[in-house]
Simulated assay, not measured.
Amino acid sequence: MATCPAQEKSLADFLSKCQGLGVEKYIQPLNARQVSEIIGSKVFGNGIFFPEAGNVHPGKMVLALKRSAIQAGVRYLRTRKSNGSMRLRVAAKGSRCRTAF
């Protein structure tokens, strides 16, 4: 998705280079309206959709994994040692794990 005129130009140049390569199934141009409908924001301009690709938001994935682990009965305790390093203790159904980071 483009956020400025320079990115709009880069997208257009990229799509131009893709023409005739037989990649239409894998690379689909989107206008600003289509981008807005997909992501729910009018901030962005044109974009490219890769229907066979996926992206993961790392922060959202970590939160979803944490929520699932807690629902499955995993307990954790995060503490800070006197030297400033962090320690994480995890316990789940009879097993324990401790790590420093």
Results as ranks from 00 to 15, higher is better:
Leu21Ala: 12
Gln71Gly: 10
Asn46Leu: 11
Lys17Thr: 15
Thr79Asp: 03
Leu65Ser: 03
Asp13Gly: 05
Leu21Gly: 08
Phe101Met: 15
Ile48Lys: 04
Gly47Trp: 01
Cys4Gln: 11
Ala92Glu: 08
Ala6Arg: 14
Phe49His: 10
Thr3Trp: 10
Phe101Trp: 11
Ala12Gln: 14
Ile38Leu: 12
Pro51Trp: 12
Ala92Thr: 03
Gln7Asn: 15
Leu21Pro: 01
Val35Trp: 02
Arg67Cys: 03
Leu77His: 05
Ala64Phe: 05
Asn46His: 14
Ala91Ile: 14
Arg33Ala: 14
Ser10Asn: 13
Glu24Ser: 06
Gly45Lys: 02
Ser68Ile: 08
Arg80Ser: 13
Lys93Ala: 04
Arg78Tyr: 11
Arg75Pro: 02
Lys42Thr: 05
Gly59Pro: 08
Ile48Glu: 02
Ile48Pro: 01
Val43Gly: 01
Val23Ile: 10
Ala53Met: 14
Tyr26Asp: 07
Val43Trp: 04
Ala69Pro: 00
Arg75Phe: 07
Ser82Arg: 07
Tyr76Gly: 03
Pro58Ala: 09
Gly40Glu: 02
Ala53Gly: 12
Gly54Glu: 08
Gly84Lys: 07
Arg67Pro: 00
Val90Lys: 00
Gly22Trp: 06
Leu30Asp: 02
Ala2Pro: 03
His57Asn: 13
Asn31Asp: 15
Leu15Cys: 09
Ala32Tyr: 04
Arg98Phe: 04
Leu15Asn: 04
Pro29Gly: 05
Met86Gln: 08
Arg33Asn: 06
Thr79Phe: 03
Lys60Tyr: 09
Asn83Arg: 09
Val35Cys: 00
Phe14Tyr: 14
Pro5Ile: 14
Gln28Phe: 13
Val43Asn: 08
Gly94Arg: 06
Ser68Leu: 13
Ala100Leu: 13
His57Thr: 09
Arg80Leu: 14
Asn55Ile: 14
Ser68Phe: 08
Gly20Cys: 07
Ile70Asp: 03
Cys97Thr: 09
Thr3Val: 14
Asn46Gln: 14
Gln34Cys: 05
Ser68Asn: 08
Cys18Gln: 13
Ile39Pro: 00
Tyr26Ile: 02
Thr3Arg: 13
Leu15Asp: 03
Lys60His: 10
Gln34Pro: 04
Gly22His: 08
